[in-house]
Amino acid sequence: MRKTNYPGVYENEQKYYTKNLMPGTALFGESLLKLDTIEYRNIDPTRSKLAAAVKKKIKVTGICEGDTVLYLGASHGYTLSFISDIIGQKGIIFAVDTAYKVFRSLFHVSNERHNVVPIYADAAHPVTYARSICAVDVVYQDVAQKNQVDIFDANFSLYVKDSGIGVLVVKTRCIDAAAAPQKVADEVKKTLRAKGYTLIDAKNLDPDERDHAYIVVSRTEQKEEKKPSRTRTARVEVPHKSGQE
């Protein structure tokens, strides 16, 4: 088992793992691997865009241990459960979804994992859950809406602290089913830059997740730009010492 450059993500025989926060439980039928006393959970790149981005060697995943995360479009909670592993007991993750059918299984996940807070609300209206959560370090968005960039911007502007990170998983087919996926992704990047975001890295997720792009951005206030402080991005870019555990 090797540490990767990404906090909390491990690699073994070209498969990716996280440390299981709840040893002995696998809520999604994923395989568990026990080495010494530590139990690891296998994350499947065809089911999780986070793992697909790791496989594509993105610069940063955007998520570190102890982070406060706002997850929009949590669905059944597959990727969510791995982010919950990465942030650990010190972190907290707010899982927002509005579809009743998937929320039932999401609620089950949050009952099992005490760092997952369920928010039954529509991510398109961030103010409706403002009195239920606190400010966050990271916004991770994976929603199937045409106006996903606007939703991302609204949530980022309201909830993310200065020098926070935003992860936008673009579903290009939702924005324009007819246009070429790469073109749509480029358009999204352009829109984000126009809204004042700094692009850290972006990868398209072929072939594991077709027609999806994983975009990591940050936004620092104008006045802070003069003296580049020790921002989160700078910290993350320093590769961890990799070696055999």
Binding site: T68, K90, I92, H114, N115, V117, P118, I119, A130, S132, I133, C134, A135, V136, L158, Y159, K161
Partner: peptide, 17 residues
Amino acid sequence: LLALKSSHYHNLLYEQN
């Protein structure tokens, strides 16, 4: 909301929600 961002409130946030 930034003032409430503290591990001190994590339990409350979880239980209330």
